[in-house]
Amino acid sequence: MIILYFWRVMLGITNRELLRFLKQKERFISALVRPLIWLFVFAAGFRATLGLAIIPPYETYILYEVYIAPGLIGMIQLFNGMQSSLSMVYDREMGSMRILMVCPLPRWFLLICKLIAGTAVSILQVYVFLIIAWFYDIQAPEIGYLSIFPALILSGLMLGALGLLMSSLIKQLENFAGVMNFVIFPMFFMSTALYPLWKIKESSLLLYNLAHYNPFSQAVELIRFAWYGQFNQSAFIYTLVAFIIFMSAAIFGYNPSKGMMMKKGR
């Protein structure tokens, strides 16, 4: 009975997030326009200047657009995670977060539901992006469109958990601009989303190390391999561990007896 209860709560929260996302057409469009501009404008411009060697999972020389596509998928999930986090800070300030928090279930479970709902929204966006990319001749083997799915779940959960953690740390909505500057942009640019690691190493060893240990890079590599029907074990373990750490910290942050809730009042 209790399992049925938990299941209904999870479905209810996921359903609400999907409904909200579909009703907010501007959010849906902007979530797609951002990576598409990178693909159609940035990648097309850099195609001629960036030469890429053959690196796994690719078995031949590839165009820069092909290389950048998994990074843009990661970008969709990174921005979606932060968008969810932003909406949680907004909901907390506006009060609607309280409706979720007074639900008679453990808070960790409610946060996990919220995370699953956000991940479902991000996967929906990614598949729409993949369809557009297909027509732009960025195609992977057919099996890749299935094997990418579990990778997207894990990467979405990890990046969503990071967003949750951020929302537990941020006191006011105004501080969110700082998150953009100090979290999203460094995470995206210091990663393998735009350039392969060996290329980064050529220019800076420090940047190479930062990119190598950046959880976002690992998530992008997990997606990249999965899209070509391959399993990148180290990226999987790294992403999983990052998810567990971020999620544990977020649950601690939302605990009313500990974390940030306690710092606000005691």
Binding site: L4, Y5, F6, R8, V9, L11, G12, I13, N15, R16, L19, R20, K23, Q24, M94, G95, S96, R98, I99, L100, V102, C103, P104, L105
Partner: peptide, 26 residues
């Protein structure tokens, strides 16, 4: 609970808001 600030989701319908609450209570 009815909080001081409105906590309904203004983009959703009345029914969708109430169904969300129904789900939260299993």
């Amino acid at each position: 609970v009815v909080f001081q600030q409105t906590t309904l989701d203004i983009d959703l319908t009345v029914l969708q808001n109430l169904r969300y609450h129904i789900a939260l209570h299993g």
